[in-house]
């Protein structure tokens, strides 16, 4: 469960940047601007190689943090990680270390791009909910650009969504089941429950994909049903119209489920 979640997180980071391709993400641009204010060069660049390096460095540092946490030495490792860039810079500037500034800049860039893994990996392996949530947030926000994206990048988008859902679901559910396992260390049924969870997760993800496609395609159904002045309006034919169609779809779903669910009918009988 944890291994799959870690792989999903790494793949999500890769695909997140693949969706935006050559566009500079907003947060990366902001960092470069801040460096520019200090009279420094823009060292944060998003390239496929840099993203790959970032993932590896993030996984390494995240793993180190998780290991340190298991030994109760997180503050020490965090202090070393915080001081290390300054130490490396100082050693490099005083020619005591044969690492060129360019290499140090690349390391900083990798560190920035690997930040979702740096947070997410300890979250997954040490069952830490805030760290999992922070990893998910960074995974989502870090590659965002102002230009947006469309169906041209549909495959990476779908891959990213699957990875995101797998990461968040497996990490969170591992946390919950680990908590239950601690209580129920004697239970022989626990394995059966875990197997059931795995199968159900795959099934529900498949159903969710189908439902997502239905909700996305509901816009076309609505176009058939609505009067022409709505159907042909500019608002309806942009992403705003599609978003509203999605909301209408889920509103109808909620109403139908409330009316036809067994609990509701049972309450009416009572």
């Amino acid at each position: 469960m944890q291994v799959v979640a870690t792989v999903a997180l790494a793949a999500g980071t890769l695909l997140g940047h693949a969706i935006t391709q050559e566009q500079a993400p907003l947060l990366t641009q902001a960092l470069n601007v801040m460096l520019g204010w200090g009279g420094l060069d823009s060292i944060f660049l998003v390239t496929p190689a840099a993203v790959g390096g970032g993932i590896l460095l993030g996984a390494l540092l995240g793993g180190t943090l998780a290991f340190a946490d298991s030994r109760g030495r997180v503050p020490l490792v965090l202090a070393v990680l915080a001081l290390l860039p300054f130490l490396l810079s100082w050693l490099s500037l005083t020619d005591r270390l044969p690492i060129a500034p360019v290499t140090l800049h690349a390391l900083a860039n990798y560190g920035w791009l690997g930040l979702p893994l740096l947070c997410g990996v300890p979250g997954i392996w040490r069952s830490n909910l805030p760290a999992i949530a922070l990893g998910a947030l960074l995974l989502l926000v870090q590659p965002l650009t102002l230009e947006g994206n469309d169906v041209a990048a549909l495959l990476p988008i779908l891959g990213f969504i699957v990875c995101f859902m797998l990461y968040i679901e497996l990490a969170y559910d591992h946390l919950r089941y680990a908590r239950l396992a601690r209580i129920m260390h004697h239970s022989t049924e626990f394995e059966a429950v875990l197997n059931w969870f795995g199968v159900m997760l795959l099934l529900t993800l498949a159903c969710t994909t189908a439902l997502t496609a239905a909700a996305f395609g509901f816009h076309e159904v609505l176009a058939e049903v609505l009067p022409a002045r709505f159907r042909n309006s500019i608002e309806f034919n942009t992403i705003y119209g599609r978003a509203l169609s999605v909301m209408v779809f889920f509103t109808l779903w909620a109403i139908a489920q409330t009316v036809f669910s067994r609990q509701f009918l049972a309450r009416q009988v009572e």
Binding site: G148, N149, V151, L154, M165, L205, I239, A243
Partner: peptide
Amino acid sequence: VLFAPFINNLQLLLLGITLLGFVAIHSL
């Protein structure tokens, strides 16, 4: 779902739909 159109982002829109769909499927 409501925010994605403002930055013209299909990725966030689809993720929003997926999250809503996930909840809808699991309610069954």
